[in-house]
């Protein structure tokens, strides 16, 4: 038996070889770079060592702070809408008295946007939301809902809202499927008991459904948070020259990192930004995890 155990190493070695080269080493190299003033020319090892200078800059950087706030704003609006929509849909479809039909068709339609190539989605909305000849303004004008075209992507608030809504459009179907599965997983007895006790729909929802769904909700929030803090494609492609305009309102943390590195070639600083981003995700994940842990106890 023991002699066979060397196969354990054999079986996991491809994973760990590749993992060390393409996973661990880049992370360590990024860390090293964040202590240098590397500019993307030559090799990071020949760049000047500057100690914690890049991190000192990061802490004082008003633009990074702005990127941090932008990212949270865009994510916050999106997660609230997304959860609300998904919950409403899940409750409607799981209602035992209504017995609505067509779940699978609606589910498929709601989920469809999630499969789209994100860069295509960004381009699509870039053109749909265009101030001058976007299809949305054209539609709203024709319907008489607005009298002047709205410069959706030209003003900070509407631009952020637009990105939030695009994110909601992309993800609410996915969240709905997960929450719906969660409700389906709850024993029917709970609902029947509530019905016998004479609870109405609203009471049932707040007293029975919601508490039982909490672990799943937290799972949804955590995965969405990790994804949301890394938002990049849509702001990058939807803003001119990928700079995150108007007034920097679409500069997310990853977009900031990308532009510092690949536009301005401040690789050293961008590496520090990456570690800053990592730390932020870590802290917030731990907070939410702790929240989840409390629930289980």
């Amino acid at each position: 038996m023991n002699s066979k155990n060397k196969y354990g190493y054999l079986f996991i070695s491809p994973f760990f070889i590749v993992f060390s080269i393409f996973g661990v080493y880049p992370i360590l190299l990024s860390l090293y770079m964040s202590f240098t003033d590397y500019k993307g020319i030559g090799s990071p090892y020949s760049a000047n060592w500057v100690g914690l200078q890049q991190y000192a800059r990061l802490i004082k950087d008003a633009y990074f702070l702005q990127a941090f706030i932008n990212t949270w704003k865009i994510w916050g609006v999106n997660i609230i809408l997304q959860l609300a929509l998904a919950l409403i849909l899940a409750v409607i479809f799981s209602d035992m008295r209504l017995k609505l039909k067509g779940v699978s068709l609606f589910r498929a339609i709601f989920y469809l946007p999630n499969l789209m190539t994100v860069s295509s989605v960004a381009l699509l909305f870039l053109y749909i939301l265009d101030w001058h000849h976007g299809a949305l303004n054209g539609l709203l004008l024709r319907a008489g809902l607005i009298s002047k075209p709205v410069n959706w992507l030209g003003q900070p608030h509407t631009a952020q809202l637009a990105v939030s809504l695009i994110q909601t459009w992309l993800w609410f179907g996915h969240t709905f499927i997960i929450i719906f599965a969660g409700i389906e997983g709850i024993s029917k007895d709970y609902f029947e008991a509530a019905m016998i006790d004479g609870a109405n729909r609203v009471q049932t929802f707040f007293k029975v459904t919601l508490p039982l769904l909490k672990p799943i909700m937290i799972y949804v929030v955590i995965t969405s948070l990790i994804g949301g803090l890394q938002l990049f494609e849509i702001p990058f492609l939807i803003s001119q020259n990928g700079l995150g305009g108007p007034e920097g309102s679409l500069v997310t943390m990853v977009l900031y990192l990308f532009n510092q590195a690949f536009k301005y070639r401040n690789f050293g600083y961008a590496a520090a930004v990456a570690y800053g981003l990592f730390l932020i995700i870590l802290v917030f994940s731990v907070i939410v995890f702790k929240g989840m842990f409390k629930e289980e106890v």
Partner: peptide, 20 residues
């Protein structure tokens, strides 16, 4: 642990590695 690490963390190092 690696499941928790965002892919952007190593992006620049990954780029430099492949350059080298």
């Amino acid at each position: 642990l690696m499941m928790m690490v965002p892919s952007q963390l190593g992006l620049l190092g990954f780029f430099e590695l492949n350059k080298a």
